[in-house]
């Protein structure tokens, strides 16, 4: 099993810092970013196994970040967060190769389970 490296990316700072704190309380080491460009730099410097990525962000949006991850960091597993009432973004993301998607607001146990599955899939690659 690899050492867990998870990156949370969401432009809502309160959301991302609180969620990170909850994950850390459960023993999952997490880094955070509130910006798509910054997230890509962080991935380049120290690639995580799993990126939890919000779809709608100002500047570089989640789907664009996803496209670049898939082009340059193929092994990294991406879990997409969508806040839309419909599942359209999630389906779009699945077509672009995301590991899975979740609707916001999240269920923390469901998120941890998805991260765990993504970590296992990362190990199998």
């Amino acid at each position: 099993m690899h050492e867990w490296k998870v990156l949370l990316v969401d432009d809502e700072e309160e959301f991302v810092t609180t969620l990170a704190e909850r994950l850390r309380l459960r023993g999952i080491p997490v880094r955070t970013s509130t910006d798509g460009e910054e997230a890509l730099r962080m991935i380049e410097t120290d690639p995580p196994q799993v990126v939890v990525l919000d779809v709608l962000m100002p500047g570089l949006g989640g789907l664009e970040v996803l496209k670049r991850i898939k082009a340059d960091f193929r092994k990294v597993k991406v879990i997409l967060l969508t806040g839309q009432g419909s599942t359209w973004d999630g389906i779009q993301g699945m077509r672009m190769g995301v590991f899975d998607y979740l609707m916001k607001p999240l269920n923390i146990n469901e998120l941890i389970e998805k991260i765990r599955e993504a970590m296992n899939a990362y190990g199998e690659d």
Partner: peptide
Amino acid sequence: AIIKESSGL
């Protein structure tokens, strides 16, 4: 989502 995570914390 922020309220949910804050109350969860």
